[in-house]
Deep mutational scan, measured.
Amino acid sequence: MEVRTIKVFTTVDNINLHTQVVDMSMTYGQQFGPTYLDGADVTKIKPHNSHEGKTFYVLPNDDTLRVEAFEYYHTTDPSFLGRYMSALNHTKKWKYPQVNGLTSIKWADNNCYLATALLTLQQIELKFNPPALQDAYYRARAGEAANFCALILAYCNKTVGELGDVRETMSYLFQHANLDSCKRVLNVVCKTCGQQQTTLKGVEAVMYMGTLSYEQFKKGVQIPCTCGKQATKYLVQQESPFVMMSAPPAQYELKHGTFTCASEYTGNYQCGHYKHITSKETLYCIDGALLTKSSEYKGPITDVFYKENSYTTTIK
């Protein structure tokens, strides 16, 4: 009895394709271990004539594949690729409408935090270190965002349907971005203890939790000093293409032309909904596939993004 075979390709990165001759009487799992086709788990399936010449994702289970996976995804987590594939199996079914010149995501599976993050990423200057993220990001900007969303979920250790947080998501993504040249110098002034300067680099240099107003941050924000008295913390120097200011959701007025974009969060910790506000020729609110415009805006804002380049204080 002759062994019926077909020729397929296996890959971990969709760049390096490895030619395989597979036995049609055995499952993919018996031949390769966990195997995925377009995100779908085909591990328990036997090869079919229609699979001839198709590319299958496999887990990096030998040295060659491990090197290829690390170079593309910059992670050695053995569960990463499987999590990416199972997320992709959902995100490829989502709709990605162009809204006001940006790629958004039609609401499904509690994905409003991903839509808000995706919209924000198209408006701030950011370059990702893992080629996987950078490639998928370019495709997302062009309207094909399924891979990018699935990668975000995998890097953030999230599953489809789980509630997510924009600030946490951005923080994970910033860790995989090139923020080497970003720098922030802060000064804390206390009447009792004097003053202390701190220099922050990388992710810490672009994120701040405690106030939404970048102007206020430049002037000074009140913080408790270690001595128990009130101290003032203010920005001395900022070198970065953008800054992200966050605070627990509270009524906040966004003035046209003073910011790049913002995240609105309605609801409580267990259950809520994100919308995205962007400042173009007027203010726009993007909620999944829905767009509304207004000249002014007041609502429960939790993150505001500002364009920056270089700032030095005039406070002496």
Rank of each mutant, 00 (worst) to 15 (best):
L17S: 06
Q20A: 14
V21L: 14
D23S: 14
S25C: 08
S25D: 09
M26N: 12
G33T: 03
L37C: 11
D38Q: 12
D38R: 09
G39P: 04
D41F: 06
V42A: 11
K44F: 14
K46S: 10
N49T: 12
S50R: 12
F56K: 04
V58H: 06
L59Y: 14
D62L: 08
A69K: 06
E71M: 08
E71F: 06
Y73P: 03
Y73I: 01
Y73H: 04
F80I: 05
G82A: 12
G82M: 13
M85T: 05
A87N: 14
L88D: 03
H90P: 04
K95Y: 05
K95G: 12
Y96S: 04
Q98P: 06
V99Y: 11
S104Q: 03
S104P: 01
I105C: 06
N111K: 05
Y113W: 07
Y113V: 05
L118P: 03
E125M: 05
F128Q: 03
N129K: 11
P131S: 04
L133T: 04
Q134E: 11
N147K: 14
N147P: 14
C149T: 12
L163F: 14
D165E: 12
E168H: 15
E168V: 08
S171Y: 12
Y172C: 10
L173V: 10
N178S: 08
L186K: 03
N187P: 00
V189A: 13
C190S: 01
T192M: 12
A205L: 01
V206W: 01
V206C: 08
Q216S: 09
K218M: 05
K219H: 09
K219M: 09
G220H: 03
I223P: 01
I223S: 12
C225R: 02
T226W: 09
T226L: 10
G228A: 03
Q238P: 01
P241A: 14
F242C: 02
V243E: 03
M245Q: 02
Q251C: 14
E253Q: 09
E253R: 07
K255M: 12
K255T: 12
F259Q: 02
T260N: 06
C261F: 00
S263F: 02
Q270W: 06
C271K: 10
H276T: 04
I277N: 00
T278E: 06
S279H: 05
T282W: 08
C285Y: 05
C285W: 00
D287F: 00
L291R: 08
T292Y: 11
T292K: 15
V304S: 01
E308W: 05
N309M: 10
Y311F: 15
T312I: 12
K316E: 15
